[in-house]
Nucleic acid binder design. Structure first.
Lengths: 148, 148
DNA sequence: GTTGTTAGTTAACTTTGCTTATATATAAAT
DNA sequence: ATTTATATATAAGCAAAGTTAACTAACAAC
């Protein structure tokens, strides 16, 4: 399963590790509170501060606007979001997180980070600096080859 | 949204980056070939070489054995897996990947890596070494606090 | 060999997510 | 003012995933 590129191999090891340790509890938690993958995708979209129109969310999730509209209905029913009319263009509905929605999103992110926090306390200050420096190179380069 | 821990912040930035760049094409691809999240989960379970009984897979995915059995049906219909009787205990069915299944799994992993390969070629040898060294520290430490 | 346990299947049902097609309201264009 | 385009909603219908409950077959124990 190893390639000839040890950068790729190491990065993949890191992804596998992250998936197993951090994503597992993430999925368990979201399942526990009854949120589906698309719904989480929508919440994350909002959290990123991306444009909040229905069709934007649909595009982002790769589904039709109709599908997005229906899925958001369920989030409205759960009182995690609100539809509000855009004053500039009354055709568009801006989706905004309710306090409850913001709280749940925070919890979700926090659960995903529990493992990361353990890791952070286990690392020495020097190790952390080294890792931060390396990851920043990686982020900068990624931005460079495909900016957004 | 920033914490007081710049290690955690940088790591999260990196995760976000990876999710947006790499997982996006991953989801598009799996959607294109008609595989759902649970099905992919099952394939990944098998790929890890974990125990291949139906209930093991169900446990791993956090669903009932009945649900796992039905979901695997669909993978059998798509000829990605085979059920085979365990010779040691004829009650258990071992799930094995077909050639087609193995091929698709390889493709899935490869798609996830396309972005990573671009990144690898964009980085200098020195940068890569630095990142590899840092990630290895991270992996080693993670293994240390929660071995498996 | 009966009795109980375990692994998996099957059936009936519910919920979700998706699609297409149709409808409505607003905005933009001419 | 009328036409056209855009943003969303709604309806009908399908497939997938999940549940519980009832069932079969194989193993284990005594």
């Amino acid at each position: 399963m190893k390639s000839t590129d040890s950068f790729i191999d190491t990065f993949n090891d890191c992804v596998d590790l992250f998936m197993r340790r951090s994503m597992r509890s993430f999925f368990q938690y979201t399942k526990g509170i009854g949120l589906s993958m698309p719904q989480i995708g929508a919440l994350f979209h909002l959290n990123r501060g991306s444009t909040s129109g229905i069709s934007n969310i649909g595009d982002d999730l790769g589904v039709t606007t109709a599908a997005a509209s229906q899925m958001l209905d369920r989030l409205v029913q759960q009182e995690l979001i609100l539809r509000s009319e855009d004053p500039d263009d009354r055709r568009v509905k801006n989706i905004i997180l309710t306090d409850k929605g913001r709280k749940i999103l925070e919890d979700i992110l926090h659960v995903r980070q529990a493992w990361l926090e353990d890791l952070s306390t286990a690392l020495s200050a020097g190790e952390k600096e080294q890792i931060i420096a390396a990851l920043k190179i990686l982020i900068a380069k990624a931005d460079q080859i495909d900016p957004r």
